[in-house]
Nucleic acid binder design. Structure first.
Lengths: 142, 142
DNA sequence: CTTGACCTTCCCATGATTGGAAGGTCCATC
DNA sequence: GATGGACCTTCCAATCATGGGAAGGTCAAG
């Protein structure tokens, strides 16, 4: 099976399949004599695993770990669960951050007339609000 | 005032101040004879506006629009409100997406023993779950 | 005049993904 | 056996906002 067919069957784009291979998330694919990558059902299975994990918001680093655990039949489910729980915490923190932003903004928008006049509590807040330092995103916290 | 002081007073890093200038979010700063950027209180005010907007999750494109509206004393508050509402919708969609992920994952984790045994519903789901195509992120929807 | 804190520009890296160029391969149809 | 279109290959660039760091210039105090 060609990369295009593997992409169609797994829901992972051919570009990403090549990329995953290049960064070591996937082993190097077998090649035909002319250099085409060749995939089998087991490979598509792995690709679907990756896609599902991405859909659940796992980073590629986490997926590397998940794949290792998946392949290790002697794994402890505790390790998987710990990884998942850490991710859940992260997802909830990010969601809470977004909700906090939207809540603040909704309060401001609720007090904005939204007509032809220029007075606007939203701009007033941006310009002069008395703002505490917000929680920094995880990326910025490093 | 130097860029460092403006950074300290506004909470925007010197790096970002230069970057905002380079992409046209800020007008080119005045310079001393030796080439140092010079800032005044009004500039710090603008920087704080930008920082606050970033803290509320606005993109730089949206901030460009917000700054234009802020400077336009004849603006209609409806325009500001519309921009804000669109952003609120976006924030809520993203938060909902993250919450959906965390909910799914929590269900899976709740059924994982999390002990030394290898059986794990989390990995089972990733590997074989019957998964519908999830809502793609806005970036991916284009 | 040295030292240290500041400033300048320039390039690179992040994470995951897409886009596109330039060129080779495969296969079916004429 | 040639042509064309669909596929594949690699490589480079861009996204978005930010930080890191190098190489070099400036400023003020001692």
């Amino acid at each position: 099976m060609n990369i295009g067919e593997a992409a169609r069957e797994s829901g992972v784009s051919a570009k990403m399949i090549r990329y995953y291979e290049s960064v070591g998330l996937l082993p190097r694919a077998q090649r035909t004599e002319s250099g085409y990558r060749v995939y089998r059902d087991a490979d598509v299975h792995t690709l679907r695993f990756i896609r599902r994990a991405r859909d659940l918001g796992f980073s590629m680093e986490q997926i590397t770990a998940l794949l290792t655990l998946w392949r290790d039949h002697g794994r402890a489910s505790a390790d998987v669960k710990q990884l998942a729980r850490a991710h859940i915490t992260e997802l909830e923190a990010r969601a809470a951050q977004l909700m906090a932003m939207s809540r603040t903004l909704r309060h401001l928008a609720d007090h904005c007339h939204g007509d032809a006049r220029p007075e606007c509590p939203i701009l007033d807040d941006l310009a002069d609000g008395n703002h505490a330092a917000p929680a920094r995103s995880r990326k910025a916290m490093n």
